[in-house]
Amino acid sequence: MTIPADVTAGVAVFDRLTGRFTESREPDRAFRSASVVKLLLALDFLWNRGPAYDPPQADRDRLAAMLSSSDDAAASHYWSTGGGSAVIARMVPRLALTGTLPPPAAYPGYWGYTATTAADTVRVYRYLLDTAPLPVREIVLGALHRSTRCATDGFDQNFGLPSAFEAPGAVKQGWSGFTSGGCTPAPAGRYGPSSGAAAGAHEPTDTATGSGEPVAPTEVAERSAPSSAPAAAPSLDLTSEALHTTGTVGPDDRTVVAVLTLHPDGTPYGTAYSKVTTLTGSLDVPGAVRPSGTRFTTWGSGVRVRSAPTTASAALTTLPAGVDVLVGCQQQGGLVSVPPYTNDWWAYLPQYGGWITNIYVNSPGNTLPGVGRCP
């Protein structure tokens, strides 16, 4: 396990085939959950609905958006209608969680300030995989298996598990304290339907900011938690930037992975994104397949990934500023000029299914060392 400098991490990796943990680093350390708490919001809503329960279409859509695309409005809805911290009070004994606590008293409406641990996150996934009623498993894990690359608030969810391993299974990410570089949906496929984003003439685009996570509920006032609600975590770090990657890897969701991290206040999203991916890729994860290619760091804000190696092609999405990318190969294409740089070489990013100009890849020359030509 390699934990990058300045990163505080809680890690738990559980192999369901052998029934043992292959990695464990401060698994009981409390972190603010950010969007990882959405797993509990979904399970609380579906609890005790009966084996034949079929949610109304509105709830199916809301749950799918909350779990696949980390939709904050959906989370606020279930937090509010579920009684706020009462959701946590119910789910802790149901799942035998040992380190999950409601938000601090000063932040009663901030569902993302719920405290959780890597060990508890593994317990949640094990319940989903091994114990949950089939309809619940299909709804929740089905949505997590369709995780989109771009969240509804414009954050790129491709860090950690989706970048470190080929075809991860279920994925639920979480972040708090960052601003976004502006992520737009990729073409139809694992990462969802295309948004039809138009191609632009220049690289990079202007940086957009996202609302970040967590947010306070906006639909219904939070209900008071029952007197049996557990006390909030006394020393939860609400200042450092939080970035978490959780989910499953391997055939039949063999291995459950929970990586919860904190980064110094002010850390750029792309920097944290890359460090979490590096940490995740260093773990012993049975059943995992690591992608081939060479990682490079990019520069620039809002760098477009295009469908072909030319600025005349469609823009598929944008990259977080300064993020590491996996380059599969390179070839010459349309000439790009960003004074004082001019370059006609382009890098193919297999995990994005598109191209970026080599100008925005940190490398001393026009071509990238150690990277072959595309066939």
Rank of each mutant, 00 (worst) to 15 (best):
D265W: 09
P27G: 04
Y348I: 00
S80D: 14
T261Y: 04
R304G: 11
T98R: 14
A272Q: 02
H145G: 15
L41R: 09
P214V: 11
W175E: 12
V7C: 04
K172E: 01
G142R: 12
Q157F: 01
V122G: 01
Y191S: 02
T218P: 04
L97Q: 04
A73L: 13
F31P: 03
A42Q: 00
V36Y: 05
G109L: 13
E138Y: 01
F14W: 13
A229G: 11
G154S: 13
F31I: 12
E166C: 12
G270S: 05
P291W: 05
R29P: 12
T280P: 06
P55Q: 08
A314N: 06
Y110K: 13
T298S: 11
R295T: 15
D71Y: 07
E26W: 01
L129K: 01
G19Y: 11
P309V: 07
Y269R: 07
G112H: 14
A233D: 15
V136R: 02
E138A: 07
S301A: 13
P251K: 02
K38D: 02
S274I: 07
S24D: 02
Y113E: 14
K38N: 05
T114N: 05
R373A: 10
D59C: 06
L279N: 12
A9M: 11
A65M: 10
S163D: 15
P369H: 04
L141V: 03
E213R: 03
G300D: 11
A272F: 00
A315K: 07
T205K: 07
A34P: 00
V257W: 02
S85R: 13
V87S: 13
G281C: 08
P27H: 00
G160Y: 05
Y110R: 15
G112Q: 14
P168Q: 05
V305E: 12
T209C: 08
A52R: 11
P214L: 09
S180M: 05
L40K: 03
V371I: 07
A9N: 07
A64I: 02
D61L: 11
T342N: 06
P340T: 13
G19N: 06
A89H: 02
V13F: 12
F178L: 02
V325F: 11
A89P: 03
E23L: 09
V220I: 14
L260V: 08
P103H: 14
A119V: 06
P93W: 01
Q157N: 08
A232M: 08
Q331H: 04
T209K: 12
T267F: 01
P251L: 10
T239Y: 13
L43R: 01
A64Q: 00
E213D: 14
G154R: 12
T179Y: 10
A164V: 12
V259E: 03
S195G: 15
T248Q: 00
T246Q: 02
W355G: 03
D237E: 13
A118T: 05
G322Q: 04
P350I: 10
G154D: 10
D153Y: 01
T2G: 03
P135W: 02
T218E: 13
S337M: 09
A347L: 10
A151R: 00
Y269M: 06
G189K: 01
Y269Q: 10
T117F: 05
R62V: 08
A221H: 08
D28T: 13
A30S: 15
G200T: 15
A132T: 00
V13C: 14
S235H: 15
V327F: 07
L279T: 10
P251F: 05
M66N: 09
E213F: 10
A288T: 01
L260Q: 08
G19F: 07
T8L: 09
I359M: 04
